[in-house]
Amino acid sequence: MLKVERIQVFYDAIQALKGLSFTVAQGEIVTLLGANGAGKSTTLKTISGLLQPRGGQIELDGKPLAGSAPHEIVRLGVAHVPEGRRIFPRLTVLENLKIGAYTRHGAAIGDDIERVFALFPRLKERARQSAGTLSGGEQQMLAIGRGLMACPRLLLLDEPSMGLAPILVEQIFAIILQINREGVTILLVEQNAAMALAVCHRGYVLETGTIILEGKASELAGNDRVRQAYLGG
């Protein structure tokens, strides 16, 4: 479904991605692991069009993505739930969800809001509240729910567990699995490697802008290097 080929991304003169390649197949959960600064978020931003690669190719269903603006990429069925949630703090919860469906029209939007409320009942209770008044966990739920409102075929999730209490992390990951079972392909960036490897099908390990390892979740979880670096031995 998604094919990333040898992309190179720069922040001014600093090269953040050095010819990164990977693929995500329809229906998969694929995770990108790596330390801070390895280029995980940069990769997602490049796929969603916030950053433009200087070299390489990104293809969605065989069609090149690079060069398209973020709002055009959303229309192709790619939703990006960014790092740090980035909800709109002075819009209400409901407005945040509606704006997530900006590219869509029609009555189905109302049904999808109900679907998100079913996934995250807390959001329903707070529908009329400013999103900025929500707790960190609720904001993460809102960010994911807002991403789902675009009806994506491919969902990019950047650090959904960041700053959340362990019980919330488990909830969020259960929901990620559920979303995937409903047919959404997921590309997941996580610091919490244990959680990520528990839910994903395949993974890639990034280090300073290149992929140093790839494999099935079970292979990565059993790999010594991964265990030492990301799973705490």
Partner: peptide, 21 residues
Amino acid sequence: GTAIRAVAQDPDAAALMGIPV
């Protein structure tokens, strides 16, 4: 109008919602 407010609060996040900023 909601799109205007969203762009005012966070233009990058607004673009990720499919809003032509």
